[in-house]
Design a binder for these strands. Sequence first.
DNA 1: CACAATTGCGCAATCG
DNA 2: TCGATTGCGCAATTGT
Lengths: 124, 124
Amino acid sequence: MILDASYYGVMPPVKQRGSRRGLSDADDEDDDYRKRRDRNNEAVKKSRYKTKQRTQETFTRVSKLKAENQVLEEKVKTLTKELQFLKELFLAHASNTQNGKFEGVDLDKLLEDVPEEKQSSNKK
Amino acid sequence: MILDASYYGVMPPVKQRGSRRGLSDADDEDDDYRKRRDRNNEAVKKSRYKTKQRTQETFTRVSKLKAENQVLEEKVKTLTKELQFLKELFLAHASNTQNGKFEGVDLDKLLEDVPEEKQSSNKK
DNA sequence: CACAATTGCGCAATCG
DNA sequence: TCGATTGCGCAATTGT
């Protein structure tokens, strides 16, 4: 924030022009000033354009991520159901055989979560 | 986009003031003008503030969605591994029993995708 | 028609 | 010195 009150109403970087030479000094200095102003105006446009682009891209990004998220969410749902189904099938069969064991594995424990030590054998 | 060349350099909504009354007409009209300008300047600030807020929120949104996405991605990965493991276990056992059948279900087909008609029984 | 909100733009200060 | 940013005001335009 600008606290300097002199900010308001301050004029261009006037380089102490005066009546030194009467009329002619306005030429090169004004030209110079205008040139600088014009260049800055271009820079401003450019900068603001870039900002707008970034903002736009960010909005697009949000849309894409939301879509991606939905897909993943659906995937998780599907996989969970699949797993649930298999788990039930598993347990149903297990109860008909060896009191809770299947292939020598404790199904309840197995199906609670991923067996960490088994992941190495799943080198996809 | 502005195509009207007269746009550039146009002055305030000057209401045809002149020398009608010499000095006094500047008072109320200028006051009115200033009031309008001030109000607009406030509106501009407000509007730009809102825009900034929205933009900022959008950036935040992207971050959150990215994080959410990673979690979901991880979840899918985990569930997939789990499923893969069970499928192998399943098949291994099945081959030891009834030539590919388990509980009367064709495992290969079952494990390819979610059995749609079974979902109704999974009312969780 | 009045008024707030939005938008394009230029100026000047400041940053890098 | 010079382009890039940023805060700010003005005026045109749009929306209520």
